[in-house]
Design a protein around this nucleic acid. Structure first.
Lengths: 109, 109
DNA sequence: ACAATATACCTCGCCTGTCAATGTATATTA
DNA sequence: TAATATACATTGACAGGCGAGGTATATTGT
């Protein structure tokens, strides 16, 4: 089962930022890692991913630079800024909040 | 703290359907009940709520009828259909799925 | 040799859910 | 009699997700 788009809406940014806490990363890699960690249940679409990179960089949460690969396709690497770290903390807190509320509102009797 | 719109996106329908499992209800009441149950952390906007009612009724998940109030403002009541019950089960299952995935993807080391 | 697949990037334009703003009407309370 | 609560509803703007399309290099299978 693959998680539907709308259920994840708003968490894309947090997921990406979280992936960058372990070190710089690039699009394709993050996409594969998210897929792996989620057991194939979350497949971030390319358009979604790259849209998010633009948004996050525009907001100052990540910075990018081209890698110096001598073989294979070029890679654009992203690194988390201090603002990005703060943002991630906020988004994780919001997730905990949301999780509580939805548990309450959707729980069975 | 109020839960941001985007984090809830996609759960509005499930929250409404869930509220109707205890018996028929109407917009204003559901809105207040959700607010109460969430400890004021989720305030469903009227436009969002009524848009959802139209969507859910169009899809056959709920049915509506006018109440016979002799005093006060008229009320439009909604009741859950069998399809709506099935849908709710699916949406709750999707929530559990999503919750697991996000826990995994956002967890700290 | 060459087709298929994997790696790796990117953008355009549509779709859909949210919601501010706005409007209607009745009942109660200060 | 003004304000607030109850109760419904629509319109149009906005933002995120993503299908479809495009570019380029490297590897693997036949």
């Amino acid at each position: 089962m693959t998680i539907s788009a709308d259920l994840l809406r708003g968490y894309t940014d947090a997921v990406i930022l979280r992936q960058l806490t372990g070190g710089d990363g690039y699009g394709y890699q993050i996409s594969k890692e998210v897929s792996r960690l989620s057991g194939g249940r979350l497949e971030m679409k390319e358009a979604t991913l790259y849209t998010a990179f633009r948004r996050l960089e525009g907001a100052g949460f990540i910075r990018s630079y081209w890698g110096d690969e001598t073989v294979g396709a070029r890679r654009r690497y992203y690194s988390l800024t201090d603002e990005g770290k703060n943002r991630l903390n906020e988004e994780v807190a919001a997730w905990h909040e949301t999780r509580e509320v939805l548990n309450k509102l959707l729980e069975e009797e």
